[in-house]
Amino acid sequence: MDQDEVFKALADPTRRRLLDLLCEENGQTLRRLCEDLDMTRQSVTQHLGLLEAANLVTTTKRGREKLHFINPVPLQDVYERWIRKFETQRLSLLHDLKIQLEKNES
């Protein structure tokens, strides 16, 4: 799965808003999501399609309804790939600093 698609999907305020809406209440129908957005049903469908292609949203059928769920797994993958390594570096800098300071003290 391509992380390009995740970043592209996130580079749009409407799609981030959709993720926020699903975060507040998971498993919503298209109709329900449209109530909170000032745009046509068609546009919302397109945005949801891009989010689904990036695997940030998954859908399941429950009876006659299609429900949308936020899928944070690709975000976790992005975190592991892009954020954790900077954190690790910062932590090791702090660690070096501590060693240095403690050495000076003794």
């Binding site: 799965m1 998971n26 498993g27 695997n55 998954t58 769920f69 899928n71 944070p72 797994v73």
Partner: peptide, 10 residues
């Protein structure tokens, strides 16, 4: 009750 659906491609 609520549900969550998670998908990962491996």
């Amino acid at each position: 009750r609520t549900s969550f659906v998670y998908v990962s491609y491996i």
